[in-house]
Amino acid sequence: MGWYNKRLAKSIWVFHMSGSPCNNCDIEILDLLTPRYDLERLGIKLVGSIRHADVLLVTGIFNQKVAPKLKRIYEQAPKPIFVVAIGTCPASGCCFKDSYNAVAKREDILPIDLYIPGCPPKPEAMIEGVAKLVEVLNG
């Protein structure tokens, strides 16, 4: 499916889910779409329904209440689907990892394909992350 992946790399529709972040990453994700960074020029579009998504952008530490919903939503997404974790929280748990409400292993909830660490990661870093994903897709 190399040929198809190349097409996919040119048209990535992202769905944004927040699993209890401090919403800074979420704001930065929206920021990516706005004039200074404009991800649409790379064919990236933010969609409202999980059924249209190719990439899930996930932020936050996935608290125990939201984790099953994240898992459920991931199952509802049409394959092929990729999960990109934005920020330090999904990577390490940041300062919240000892909370009684944080899940122990985030990898069990979602199979994360790519981490973009930072608190919050700079928009440039996110673009670089997306470019990495595109590289992977292109083979």
């Binding site: 329904s49 999980i50 059924r51 919903k69 994240l70 459920r72 939503i73 199952e75 509802q76 049409p78 394959k79």
Partner: peptide, 11 residues
């Protein structure tokens, strides 16, 4: 390629 699933209601 078809898969059956429940309705999507924001989780």
């Amino acid at each position: 390629t078809v898969r059956y699933d429940d309705v999507y209601l924001g989780g």
